Simulated scan of single mutants.
Amino acid sequence: MGFEHSSWGAESAAINYRQDMDIIDDVLLRKQLATITSPDSQDSIDERVSEVRTIREEAGLPPSGGAPDRITFSTVVKASRGRSLDDDGEVVEVWMVHDRYGTEQGKGGDSNPLKNQLDCLIVKWQDGDWKLTDEPKYVKLKSSPSAYFPDSKFAFKDGWREVGSE
């Protein structure tokens, strides 16, 4: 994917993955995950696809398939907090606060978006890129971030930074 081998590269990769990861099309999500998931965490692909299938069924959609016609979804990461989970900076947890919107063609934006969702992805430098990992030895090292508020000195001290938009 081309993210640099640095702490900022790890955060950028995780943010990009969260924003681009399909949340309703299980077939597309599986393809995306096959590209960005570490070979050490292939079981997590099935788990994430199963989560999407559950969401689809809860929304009254068939368990597998694409997004309903004329509806698109987008995820916008507003802030992130990265921390290394090893001594070399090769494994990084990235906590993110994001909003998720649905838009129906011809009807405008989402009147009830999911706001301020908290999520964590762990990325590992492998084969020249940052890959998602859910290896238990790293998952057990995850931290608990302080709450994110844009103007909070405590959130800033904890490492939260606003994510710029284009």
Rank of each mutant, 00 (worst) to 15 (best):
R53L: 02
K153A: 12
V139H: 03
N16L: 06
S41H: 11
D151H: 09
L132V: 07
T72H: 11
M21H: 08
A10K: 11
I55E: 11
M1R: 14
D88K: 15
R30N: 07
S50N: 15
M96V: 04
Y148K: 10
W160E: 01
G159L: 04
V97W: 06
D88S: 15
R70S: 03
R81V: 00
D43M: 10
G2E: 01
Y138F: 15
E90F: 11
L28W: 06
E90Y: 04
T35K: 14
I24D: 00
W8A: 09
S84T: 13
E135V: 04
F3Y: 15
K124V: 05
S12N: 12
G66Y: 03
Q19M: 15
S80A: 11
R56V: 02
E51M: 04
D151R: 10
M21D: 06
E90H: 12
P113S: 02
L33D: 12
P62G: 12
P63A: 04
V139A: 02
S12Y: 13
V163H: 07
R83I: 04
E166S: 12
G109T: 03
V139Y: 05
E90K: 14
P68C: 07
S12D: 04
E4A: 15
P136W: 14
L28I: 04
S111D: 00
P150D: 03
T54R: 15
R53E: 13
A13Q: 00
P145W: 09
